[in-house]
Design a protein around this nucleic acid. Structure first.
Length: 422
DNA sequence: CCTAATGATTACGT
DNA sequence: ACGTAATCATTAGG
């Protein structure tokens, strides 16, 4: 670049001098205009002559120009003009706002632990993300470590690339600054102009950085969806967990909506998260409601289970001769009916919140079913062995528009249910 | 390999 | 925020 500029200057000077001094070849040049073929040779010769011109001579000319007595005045005038134009340009070009796009990317990378401080934060974030998305703690941490390794790889590449870019940017900036500074001796360059140039360079480089960030984000997202998307890597809950959940569900069939506290309790018991408990209950409710018949067997099973427990409990209670209601207010734990929990299991959440005799209904609930079961076990031929409706009148959680238990109704075209096709 | 079961996600309503 | 209903994507069993 340096050479190039010097060459240009040299050529200019050469041309000027030739015009000034009055070339002895001028006549021949004029002649040559009529003969284009020979002209090329001439031009070539001239070029050769220019290149033959010594550098010292050129420098001398430059120096002479610099030392011209009118030079400072001219220079300052040019500076003034330049300042004005630069200012006007600057007025048009607003200060760039903090790019929301890059902010977003930055935030995401930070959250993902890619652009964080170092290994510690990154892996912690990854682990947290994994825990949040994953679920049961018993599932292998092999995948996690694999994920972490890949994430670390991405982070490393990202950082090295970023560093490279930064280095290149500063190098280039330095180079340009030096060049401009040097040139500012011979042509007017205001510091503001330099500043602007630097800003332009930085903008360019930051756009490159943004591309890097974007692609890194993409890579992380792909990695995430591959390794941590719980939907992909779904694990069935273990048997004990489903047992606990089912127990709760069927023993609260009249109102299977566990409170936040109950959910927490269940989550703790099952080794899953609260949202997983919510998911489970959501799925269970809808699937139960959709096809009650299918779940009858299960319902009866758990009815028996809880009934037996309840019976045990009441037996124990009566034996212990403590018929007083153990009403411990509405504090915390809604114990599941388990042998150890004794009377806590007698609590039930009534929809209306009337806790007058809360234990009774549930016990009746389960015992009713149990007696039905043990009494006359008829084959479940469509007839509802267990009919949830009669248990409590105001259980409206399953006012089914489609009360059939076995088969969903074949497409009734009657209703004008204009369904949106995707 | 096909299918039912199942946990998670999404769209929508309240 | 939470629930429902539909749907997706995976797992497990035949």
């Amino acid at each position: 670049m340096d050479d190039q500029t010097r060459m240009l200057g040299l050529a200019g000077l050469g041309a000027l001098s030739q015009a000034d001094v009055g070339d002895p070849d001028a006549a021949r040049k004029q002649q040559a205009l009529g003969q284009p073929q020979q002209d090329i040779g001439d031009i070539l010769q001239q070029i050769m002559a220019i290149t033959d011109e010594s550098l010292d001579e050129a420098q001398a000319r430059k120096h002479a120009l610099n030392c011209h007595r009118m030079k400072p005045a001219l220079f300052s005038v040019l500076c003034e003009i330049k300042e004005k134009t630069v200012l006007s340009i600057r007025g048009v070009q607003e200060e760039d706002p903090p790019d929301p796009q890059i902010m977003r990317l930055d935030n995401m990378l930070l959250a993902e632990g890619v652009s964080g401080p170092e290994k510690g934060g990154g892996s912690a974030a990854a682990a947290a993300a994994a825990a949040a998305a994953g679920g049961s703690p018993n599932d292998g941490s092999i995948e996690h470590s694999d994920y972490r390794a890949k994430l670390a790889q991405i982070r490393q590449i990202y950082h090295s690339e970023l560093e490279k870019y930064e280095q290149a940017c500063s190098e280039f900036t330095n180079h340009v600054m030096n060049l401009l500074r040097e040139q500012s001796r011979t042509r007017p360059i205001s510091p503001k102009e330099i500043e602007r140039m630097v800003a332009i360079i930085h903008r360019k480089f930051s756009s490159i950085q943004m591309q890097l960030k974007q692609s890194t984000c993409e890579a992380v997202m792909i990695l995430r969806s591959r390794f941590l998307d719980a939907r992909r890597k779904r694990r069935n809950f273990n048997k004990q967990a489903t047992e606990v959940l089912n127990e709760y569900f069927y023993s609260h069939l009249s109102n299977p909506y566990p409170s936040e506290e109950a959910k927490e309790e269940l989550a703790k018991k099952c080794g899953i998260t609260v949202s997983q408990v919510s998911n489970w209950f959501g799925n269970k409710r809808i699937r139960y409601k959709k096809n009650i018949g299918k779940f009858q067997e299960e319902a009866n099973l758990y009815a028996v289970k809880t009934a037996v427990d309840a019976a045990n409990v009441s037996a124990q209670a009566s034996q212990a001769n403590s018929p007083a209601t153990p009403n411990s207010g509405s504090s915390g734990s809604y114990g599941l009916s388990r042998t150890g929990d004794s009377y806590l299991s007698l609590r039930s959440l009534n929809g209306e919140g009337l806790n007058i005799a809360p234990s009774l209904q549930q016990q009746v609930d389960t015992l009713h079913r149990a007696t039905h079961l043990t009494g006359g076990y008829e084959e479940l031929s469509g007839s509802a062995l267990y009919t949830p409706h009669h248990l409590d009148a105001n259980s409206s959680w399953q006012d089914n528009p489609n009360p059939s238990s076995i088969t969903p109704p074949p497409g009734h075209p009657s209703s004008v249910h204009s369904d949106t096709s995707t």
